[in-house]
Write a protein that binds this DNA or RNA. Structure first.
Length: 621
RNA sequence: GCACCCGUAGCUCAAUUGGAUAGAGCACGAGCCUACGAAGCUCGGGGUUGCAGGUUCGAGUCCUGCCGGGUGCGCCA
């Protein structure tokens, strides 16, 4: 396959020249020319930054070294780049010839858009969503769900076999408490709504976890507002309810038929709404991805036993703990009464994902508060040697374990988000609001006589409005570095101006409009020569040609924001091009067709990238 | 007490992992629809990158110490 990277031959030539100069193999780390896109267009398209560091090692002057290497590499680069220019302390500025851009664009204009299948034959497991049964999804689940889905799609795009893993909280005491409570009141389990469940959950929490001493201790220890907010939900006089719930849990775990049946109803009610939200959000979350705590219930004791047998875990005050060198905090994997903890489930889940699913990369999209927890769990799994994974081709490798620690969604008071009435802000409420605003916006534009959507049926406008509203929410969440907390602000999340989801959708709609007006079928410009002479054409070409690299980088760093940055850059470049370079009225005909082809390639790249974010692209909006 | 995360323009965020004069969007001000959709484009003001040292050709980025905010830390999940 032809490379779509226009700098590749230049990299190769510079690498060879550096290797000769310092006497190493071209593949050597030291021969890396350190080529980056230029910070400023006046320094060309790319810059090579190797000379300064290299000169320090060899004791020569960086500028002299840069000049020498540039001259040595010049003959090999002549077909691709304008003559090199050495500037500042020893930067080499590189400006591509239009012909090099044209060739690279032609290579990119293929079905795969120049995205290399780097993950072919490899498997990744992505832990996402993580809802709790009987609990309504709140805005925090938005992040675990869409970040996980996007990361999964990005890996799929690169050829990885992807296993989404929805680690439901569907087993253990909290669920037993809800079950117990519902069965003790005259509730018809077949007519339950998630709201009923949610109320029962909160009521159960309330009556079951009264621990005034715990709250006082947390205050005294200076615990943060998250912890206090949780503890404040609890109240006194809990022993009786707790005992009853524990009896229910024992029966459930023993497989009591009636209880298991009712338990399944709770899951069904919960998941119905989860899948509804997933559909609204454009998230792939097939039922096969359900791998909750209950799925691992038979795998807990074997996991514990393995840690005992390998002597990695030790008894301490009756409990079983794993200790780590140089770390005060141990990992508790079994309570003194013999019961497993949530860490135990995570250990069993990792073992399953690596050894049964064959995942050589496991990604957890879980909020940042669990950082330490995953450090411990990952280290424990490495200590016991469960990270060795057999590939399909017979080789083995070490699984890469990643936690994507996203920040919390806070209220305007910078505390965990609550509505005015003190309830959690539900995901559904957010999505409803986003769609309502999207629809309002789309309908307002359609009312204008000059709008391309003028006179369209309301149902179609509604569908477009939903797509716009959802795009706004998702892009706002995914485009920033996910580790940061952010303050929940509806106006910001559903913004339609500037660097937003709708901005990207708008670029696609503009292109669709041009292509439709041109009356050209795809074949009429499929062979047209790409234009790369006007500054705006060059800028668009350079942005487009990063497509494959940007997707690969987003996967390497497990950072959806990398992809968003790239798509935004493409859209900005396109809008600049759109402003400066007429397409339909361009002369001569070859330029018109060439620009149409460039538009079409841009549309495909944006559609591809937005698809990885799970954002729909209306052709009119 | 210990550990980790975060402090960049009025606000929300970048800065390709140590590179050139710290960039975008929002908001504010001035322009651009008789060439394709103005959800757009162009121009402008706005900064002691929390503070103080250090490392070097070069620091928002690395090291040390502070300040401010947040999160977590044995029988919850």
């Amino acid at each position: 396959m032809a490379s779509t990277d226009p700098v590749e031959p230049i990299t190769t030539a510079l690498r060879a020249a550096i290797a000769r100069a310092i006497g190493c193999e071209p593949s050597d780390q030291r021969a890396d020319p350190v080529i980056r896109p230029s910070a400023n267009p006046k320094f060309g398209d790319f810059q090579a930054n190797f000379a300064m560091a290299l000169a320090k090692q060899s004791g020569s002057k960086p500028r002299d070294l840069a000049v020498a290497i540039a001259e040595a590499a010049a003959p090999g680069c002549e077909p691709f780049a304008e003559p090199f220019e050495v500037a500042g302390p020893g930067f080499i500025n590189i400006r591509l010839k239009p012909e090099a851009l044209r060739r690279a664009l032609v290579a990119m204009d293929s079905p795969d858009l120049g995205v290399q299948p780097l993950g072919a034959g490899r498997t990744v497991a992505v832990d996402l969503c993580g809802v709790n049964v009987a609990k309504q999804m709140h805005v925090g689940h938005l992040r675990a769900t869409i970040i996980g889905d996007t990361i999964a799609r990005i890996h799929e795009r690169l050829g990885w076999t992807t296993c989404r893993q929805n680690h439901l909280g569907d087993w253990g005491l909290p669920i037993a408490m809800v079950l117990d409570r519902l069965r003790n009141e005259p509730a018809n389990l077949d007519a339950l709504t998630l709201d009923d469940l949610n109320r029962a959950y909160r009521a159960a929490q309330h009556e079951g976890r009264g621990d005034g001493a715990g709250l006082a201790a947390a205050r005294a220890a200076g615990s943060g507002p998250h912890r206090l907010a949780e503890l404040e939900l609890q109240c006194e006089d809990a022993a009786a309810a707790l005992e009853s719930a524990k009896r229910t849990l024992v029966k459930l775990q023993a497989g009591d038929l009636e209880l298991v049946r009712d338990w399944q109803k709770l899951i069904d009610v919960t998941m119905r709404e989860v899948y509804e939200s997933a559909r609204t959000l454009g998230v792939h979350l097939p039922p096969e991805s359900e791998r909750g705590e209950s799925f691992f219930r038979d795998k807990l004791q074997p996991a514990i036993q393995a840690f005992v047998d390998s002597k990695i875990a030790e008894r301490d005050q009756g409990a079983l703990v794993v200790r780590f060198p140089g770390r005060e905090r141990p990992l508790l994997i079994q309570k003194s009464d013999g019961a497993a903890l949530y860490a135990t489930t995570d250990l069993a889940a990792l073992r399953y994902r690596i050894q049964d699913l064959g995942a050589e990369k496991v990604i957890y999209c879980v909020d940042a508060r669990q950082r330490d927890h995953f450090i411990d769990v990952f280290d424990a799994v490495e200590m016991i040697g469960w990270t060795r994974v057999a590939r399909r081709d017979g080789t083995t490798t070490e699984a890469e374990l990643v936690h994507v620690p996203f920040g919390s969604v806070l209220g305007a008071d910078r505390k965990p988000l609550k509505t005015r009435s003190g309830e959690n802000f539900t995901l559904k409420a957010l999505l409803d609001e986003a769609c309502a605003r999207g629809r309002r916006e789309v309908h307002a534009r359609a009312a204008e006589a000059t709008s391309p959507t003028h006179g369209w049926p309301a149902a179609e406008l509604d569908a477009i409005g939903d797509a716009v509203g959802i795009a706004a929410v998702k892009y706002a969440d995914l485009s920033a570095d996910v580790t940061r907390d952010y303050i929940f602000d509806l106006d910001r999340m559903v913004a339609f101006d500037g660097d937003t989801g709708p901005y990207l959708q708008y670029a696609v709609a503009r292109i669709a409009s041009i292509i439709q007006r041109s009356g050209a079928a795809g074949t009429s410009f499929a062979q047209a020569p790409f234009p790369a002479d006007a500054p705006e054409e060059r800028a668009l070409a350079l942005a487009l040609l990063r497509h494959g690299t940007a997707i690969a980088q987003a996967a390497d760093e497990d950072a959806p924001s990398r992809l968003c940055q790239h798509l935004s850059a493409v859209a900005v470049a396109f809008n600049g091009f759109y402003q400066a370079c007429p397409v339909l009225k361009a002369e001569p005909e070859s330029l018109r067709l060439g620009r149409l082809r460039l538009c079409h390639l841009t549309q495909r790249a944006l559609t591809d990238g937005l698809g990885l974010l799970g954002i729909a692209v209306p052709q009119r909006m």
